[in-house]
Design a protein around this nucleic acid. Structure first.
Length: 822
RNA sequence: GGGCGAGUGGCGGAACUGGUAUACGCGACGGACUUAAAAUCCGUUGGCCUAAAAAGCCUUGAGGGUUCGAGUCCCUCCUCGCCCACCA
């Protein structure tokens, strides 16, 4: 037989799989279903890199494993094609994004196939195609019709390079996520009219459902923090000599009696109105400064700054007159944009001390000495404690007083219980070209009017100039023919909306389109989706918060409108690690340290070796440092498997004695069990290690005893089937060489036989006082007395027992005998 | 600053609910094959002690504790990584 040469067999099988459609999922099958997928890819001119190889192999192994187990297993493929890179490329070169995508995507097909991923190409989707974004637009319309999409003017992050609005999560360390280099500018704030999805309506249920998810813990936590629920009270303060009132949000209503001042965010609506003439100049300057101050500067500048407005508020709890200040550490976007400051909060404490604002203490610890220090205001006491100087609430514990004080203020109609979320509504407008146009017509008479469903999709017109207009509108404002349209309501002259939808919308529902990619009349056939939902396995190394949260939101929305049944789209989510360069640095184009999977494949090692290496190097949730010697190591393993099968095929027919038969079975069956459980539990590295170990043991046995017989055939078949999810090409080749006429990739997963999991003879470790002193062989299931009797005959044990007496014996069946002597 | 996670050979990493620490792979060393090299195959490989073996001692970031027995549980400390970061 020939030597193992991946360059021959890999392309051969890829072609055959393509032609025979082994990986085409029958969505109407009666088999149990399984769908495994990784976050879909953004096609760029660079092609796939080693990180993609990692991500997609993880879900491919899962899909293949289930397919071999007899599931109708679906490993879908699609393209997250809308987004800025293709548009920026278009601006630079004049090549339309539509054309770039048409050029780029076929290259990805080749690369995906070269990696041996078992994608179902018949159901491929791409978000930039009108047949897809028609339904992205439809989702917007449905949201609008149900009151979950609205338009509002907001201060928004603005990237001066891309000339577009950014969502909060697209601002990283004060810079645009696409331009975060040292020379890139900081983001600015601009008032922009935006479309929003009311995700905050779902905040509570999105939060509540997190605990039940079978997801990586770190991601669950990130989601919780992102939603950021906090329960407290909104308390209303009258302004002295004015009819206006200021509402503040607090989670510590129990500290209200020590309120020393009110602090407003500089952007707060009342700031300018209440400022007294004497203070106007300073206040205006402060507001102006903080507008220009970037988020980075605000954060870097931990030192508290602020200006007194000259106005006073009345504490509704005790009638005290307290000053109103402004400071940029108070965030306009959270709560009411105003707080009451008191000595029991670290930040307020700092502020009060810095500006010498009179303050007093209302919570003290139980310890008398400490209480005295707190009363002397030596440090900030922000923990729970006992109330003092708090009228009828004095003496209560702070955690109990909290609710009582809110009730009391509520009766006076100056407070109510409120829940706040860190998460804001989802800004879905983008002033960019390369996205799904928002299906809205702006009519001078009727205002915003939805494009009727029958006119969807609103096709994105091709342009010659893709540069945003710079006035805040996308390049679509230049497409005059496209822009002007008759209003569907009054039939007067109107204009189309020039904003496009955030690409996170495209990716928040794509998993459902996979089940019915060609449907022209509906977003998808609910019956099919209800059969296939939820996604059984999902993985990725990015997007722990935004994408997953938005997908969960859309799934809940779909559930409410009856399209699907499962409010949670992803049953299991694995947040896998990334691959970095050997020095731990991220791969990047600018560093030129990238590793090209296709180069490794074509260098002769093949995709199978690359796949094995990536899955073997470390547990899936750890980051892997690329090691160029890893792939050759994986290749050696596959080569050993190849050579063993070759030798078997060239050997003569024969019989094995009972001992050898048993020995081989006792290698293979535990392996099957371990590999099955490990893949199930996403422990691919130990699954591969187990197969390697078994192969090594078979090598030890084969020396004199390799003959063509049922036991060897079964052993080799099992090992090939177990390798198949990781190394699909070599296993298919060897499978066929062993005489099979059907593929190894369907219905071939071996079962283990319990009788071979235990051996008749076991090794028992003999310890004296917890230290290993001997090993003895005993029949499986021997009792303590027998083991002890045999152990006492061991020379080394005798030495230890000679001078002391046995005080106690601990026996763990078939494992350990510990003799305690004194 | 807050939260989460992790520290195991020269390296990546194993170790089930406390029960033979270092599986598997890489690297290194020795041998076979070869004119030679690569590839392949066989063997050795935590440290100390030893010519070698046996026996023994030490070893899972540091220190302490619980236990017959601790990488695993508890306490204190150190280091690293990731995420969030003035959210009232």
């Amino acid at each position: 037989m020939q030597r193992y040469n991946p360059s021959d067999i890999e392309p051969k099988w890829q072609k055959i799989w393509d032609e025979t459609g082994v990986y085409t999922a029958n969505l109407k099958s009666n088999r149990p279903k399984y769908i495994a997928m990784s976050m879909f890819n953004y096609p760029s001119g660079a092609g796939i890199h080693i990180g993609h190889a990692m991500n997609y192999t993880i879900s491919d192994v899962k899909a293949r494993f289930k397919r071999q187990q007899g599931y109708e297993s679906y490993h879908p493929v699609g393209w997250d094609a809308f987004g800025l890179p293709a548009e920026n490329y278009a601006i630079k070169t004049g090549v339309s994004p539509q054309e770039s995508m048409a050029n780029i995507i076929p290259g990805y097909h080749k690369q995906y196939k070269a990696m041996g991923w078992s994608n179902d190409w018949q159901k491929e989707i791409a978000t930039h195609l009108p047949e897809y974004y028609k339904w992205t637009q439809w989702i917007f319309s449905e949201m609008y019709r149900r009151g979950l999409a609205y338009q509002d003017s907001r201060m928004q992050w603005w990237c001066s390079i891309d000339k577009t609005v950014l969502a909060n999560e697209q601002v990283i360390d004060g810079k645009c996520w696409r331009h975060d280099g040292p020379n890139d500018p900081l983001v600015e704030k601009r008032e922009v009219k935006q479309w929003f999805f009311k995700i905050t309506d779902y905040a509570d249920e999105l939060l509540a459902a997190i605990d039940q998810l079978d997801w990586s813990e770190s991601v669950k936590l990130a989601q919780k923090n992102w939603i950021g629920k906090s329960v407290g009270a909104e308390i209303e303060f009258r302004i002295h000599n004015s009819k206006d009132t200021i509402k503040v949000f607090t989670t510590r209503a129990d500290t209200i009696f020590s309120a020393a001042l009110i602090i407003l965010a500089p952007e707060h609506k009342l700031t300018k109105k209440i400022t007294t003439i004497d203070n106007q100049q300073l206040i205006n300057k402060y507001i102006e400064d903080s507008e220009h101050k970037s988020e980075v500067e605000r954060q870097a500048d931990k030192d508290k700054s602020g200006v007194f407005t000259g106005a006073y508020a009345i504490n509704p709890a005790n009638g005290e007159k307290i000053p109103i200040w402004i400071s940029d550490f108070v965030l306009a976007g959270y709560g009411t944009g105003a707080i009451f400051g008191d000595i029991h909060d670290e930040r307020d404490f700092e502020f009060i001390k810095k500006f010498n604002i009179p303050a007093r203490v209302s919570i003290i610890p139980e310890d008398e000495q400490e209480a005295q220090k707190v009363k002397n205001q030596e440090y900030c006491y922000s923990s729970e404690g006992i109330l003092i100087d708090s009228a009828e609430f004095s003496g209560l514990r702070s955690n109990q007083a909290r609710e009582k004080i809110i009730d009391w203020l509520a009766k006076k109609k100056v407070a109510k219980e409120v829940t706040n979320y860190r998460m804001l509504d989802w800004s879905v407008s983008r002033q960019r070209y390369w996205g799904a146009p928002i299906p809205v017509i702006n009519c001078p008479k009727c205002g915003s009017v939805l494009v009727p469903d029958k006119d969807l999709p609103v096709i994105l017109p091709e342009l010659t100039d893709y540069q945003p207009t710079g006035d805040g509108r996308s390049a679509l404002a230049r497409a005059k023919d496209w822009l002007s349209i008759e209003c569907p309501q009054c039939h007067g002259l109107a204009e189309r909306e020039t904003d496009t939808l955030d690409t996170y919308i495209d990716s928040s529902w794509y998993m459902y389109r996979y089940f019915d990619p060609q449907n022209q009349n509906n977003i998808f056939d609910s019956e099919i989706v209800k059969k296939w939902e939820p996604i059984d396995f999902y993985n990725g190394a990015d997007h722990a918060t935004a994408h997953l949260l938005y997908a969960r939101f859309i799934a809940r929305f779909f559930t409410k409108i009856g399209l699907i049944n499962e409010p949670e789209p992803f049953k299991q989510f694995l947040f896998n690690g990334k691959v970095t360069a050997s020095d731990g640095q991220m791969f990047s184009k600018s560093k030129g340290n990238g590793v090209d999977p296709l180069e490794i494949i074509s260098s002769g090692y093949g995709a199978d070796s690359l796949r094995i290496y990536l899955m073997f190097a470390a547990p899936l949730d750890l980051w892997v440092k690329w090691d160029s010697r890893g792939v050759p190591g994986a290749y050696r393993f596959l080569n050993r498997l190849w050579n063993l099968v070759s030798e078997y095929l060239e050997s003569a027919d024969g019989q094995l004695n009972d001992d050898d038969r048993l020995a081989i079975n006792q290698i293979i069956h535990p392996m099957i069990k371990k590999v099955t459980e490990d893949i199930e539990n996403n422990r691919y590295n130990t699954a591969i290690a187990t197969i390697m170990g078994s192969l090594n043991e078979l090598y030890r046995i084969k020396k004199n005893n390799l003959v063509k017989c049922d036991v060897w055939l079964a052993a080799l078949s099992s090992i090939i089937a177990c390798v198949a999810p990781f190394a699909p090409h070599i296993s298919e080749e060897l499978w066929q060489l062993l005489g099979n006429s059907t593929t190894v990739h369907r219905d071939t997963w071996p079962k283990w036989d319990e009788q071979y999991l235990v051996s008749e003879e076991v090794t028992i470790v003999i310890q004296v006082n917890g230290k290993v002193r001997a090993e003895i062989k005993m029949p499986q299931g021997a009792n303590q007395e027998d083991v002890l009797t045999v152990a006492q005959k061991e020379d080394n044990i005798k030495r230890y027992l000679a001078e002391s007496s046995i005080k106690k014996v601990i026996y763990i069946a078939d494992k350990i005998l510990n003799i305690v002597v004194g």
